[in-house]
Amino acid sequence: MIDLAMHMMDIVQNAIRAGAGRIGIYFVESNEKTMLLFRVTDDGSGMSEAGLEKVDDPFFTTRTTRRVGLGVPFLKMTCEQAGGFLKVLSAEGRGTTIEAVYRTDHPDCLPLGDIAGYLTLLLKANPAISFRFLYKLDESEFSLDSEALKAEGIALQQAEMLTTVRQYIRENLQALQRDRSAESYLC
């Protein structure tokens, strides 16, 4: 995982596998605290206490196709490398919230990567799931709600619309990031 967008896809894929109907993706960046919070919440199956204890164990997985599960351990690794930490909250039957905090004044803080590209793919490939995306930088924010897009009649089935939506997200994120402090290693 070389950027946060990859982690986003990976962690959201976990939520999809947990049968989530609603998935929230949040990036909250603070110039003053020099921190970035990355959070994914879902209303999927959640994890048992025993499962939760092993969530950062790379040799624990519920799947049967292979015997390792590296998604969460990688996320823990990259945020801890950047002086941050990982927190997972989960209750069986009620869903999971996973939070990774990165220090943006740490040179090992991951770049954001192609968030717009991954997000549009998620929206396109999972029309039955309702996604809420929020990127907040201090007081400014950009949010996107898949239900609101649907209500506006925006159909991602057409590849042309997909490109347009990606462009829309990309431009909004770029506009936000002008407010980022020059000290930040995030890019």
Binding site: M1, M6, M9, D10, Q13, I16, R17, R63, T65, D114, G117, Y118, L121, L122, K124, A125, N126, Q158, A159, E160, L162, T163
Partner: peptide, 29 residues
């Protein structure tokens, strides 16, 4: 993801549409 599945998925989504092939492109685990 680590091996570049995103580029492949974007390629399928865009090219199948361009080449007028009715298809459903989804992601799986």
């Amino acid at each position: 993801i680590a091996s570049g599945a995103k580029e492949v998925m974007e390629f399928f989504v865009e090219e199948l549409d361009k080449r007028s092939i009715d298809a459903v492109v989804t992601q799986t685990g």
